[in-house]
Amino acid sequence: MPIMIELIILAVLAGVVLYQLYSVLGRRVGRQPEDMPAPALPDSRAPAPEALEGVELTGLAAVKARDPSFEVGQFLNGARAAYEMVVKAFAEGDRETLKRLLAPHVLAGFETAMAEREAQGRSERVDFLQTPRADLDGVETEGTVARAKVRFLGEYRARSKGPEGEAVDDRRTAELWTFQRNLNSRDPNWTLVQVDPAEA
């Protein structure tokens, strides 16, 4: 009989211990993953046109609002390629290439210089000694027209021929080129509209 009572007491104690373990281990302590709010994902979409009404945007923000695909790095790569093409085309008198890249008034200035060089019986060819450096100097918008200024630092070797013979000249240039495009146009290309000297 005493053994029976002892077994009953042990069973009761075991039940109490198990209940206490369950009450501790089965309880959720602190914030659980399902209690945490879902993280907010950044909205990379361009704002809807109606969201831009009454809002004045300038610079890169204005360009990105109208052309979400615009990327500074990609633009500078294109501008650098255009710079090399224009410099080489001007030296070689390649008018067809220049027509595709220059605004009419800029082309007229280039045409005057090329015609004068040709009248003197001179020709020229250039080779870049290293990849030109291109830095975005600023972006501005006026209505649907965007203008981007790029500072170029170039180093090239010019080989010229004239009545007096041939000459080789290594040159370093620092120029500020202004490119322009209509943001409402489907044509993604930018046109060179101004060339200014710049500090190296």
Rank of each mutant, 00 (worst) to 15 (best):
P33R: 10
R80F: 04
L41C: 00
A46L: 04
Y83V: 04
E92D: 12
M36Q: 12
G73N: 11
T97Q: 06
K88F: 01
V29L: 13
A61T: 08
G109V: 07
E92Q: 14
R122E: 13
K99Y: 04
E53C: 08
V24T: 11
K64W: 02
A81I: 10
F110K: 02
A38F: 09
A11N: 06
D94K: 08
G54V: 02
K88A: 13
K64L: 13
E71S: 13
R66E: 08
A51Y: 02
G121L: 03
R125G: 10
R31D: 14
R28I: 01
G73Y: 03
F90P: 01
D35Y: 04
T58H: 12
P104E: 07
R27E: 08
H105T: 15
V12Q: 00
V24I: 15
A119I: 08
F128E: 00
F75P: 00
R45Q: 12
G26E: 00
A103K: 03
F90K: 05
G78Y: 05
E118Q: 14
E124S: 15
A11I: 12
V16K: 03
S44L: 15
A115I: 10
G54T: 01
Q32P: 02
A113D: 14
F110S: 10
K88E: 13
A108I: 04
A62D: 06
L76S: 03
G109T: 08
R95N: 09
P47S: 08
A14H: 08
L18A: 15
D94S: 07
T97D: 02
P39M: 08
R28S: 09
V17W: 04
G78M: 05
A79P: 01
G78L: 08
E96S: 11
F128Q: 06
A119G: 09
Y19W: 13
R66Y: 05
A115K: 13
V63R: 03
E118W: 07
K99G: 01
F75N: 03
A113W: 02
A81N: 15
V87P: 05
T112F: 09
F70D: 07
G93P: 04
A11K: 03
P47V: 02
A38D: 13
E96K: 11
P49G: 08
E53T: 13
F128H: 01
A62V: 04
R28A: 11
E50V: 11
Q120L: 14
V24H: 09
F90R: 00
A62Q: 00
P104T: 03
L52A: 01
S123F: 09
S123A: 15
S69M: 09
V63P: 05
E124F: 07
E96F: 02
Q120G: 10
S69F: 10
L41M: 12
P47T: 02
R27P: 04
A14N: 06
Y83N: 06
E124I: 01
V17H: 00
E84C: 06
A79R: 00
Y22H: 13
F110H: 11
A119S: 14
A11G: 14
L60R: 09
Q74H: 10
A115V: 12
V86R: 05
Q20I: 11
P68W: 06
A38I: 12
G15D: 10
E84W: 00
V126Q: 05
H105N: 13
Y19N: 10
L41P: 00
L41K: 12
E34H: 10
L41V: 13
E92A: 15
G26T: 06
A91F: 03
E118F: 09
L101T: 02
Q120S: 12
T58Y: 10
F128R: 07
E96M: 07
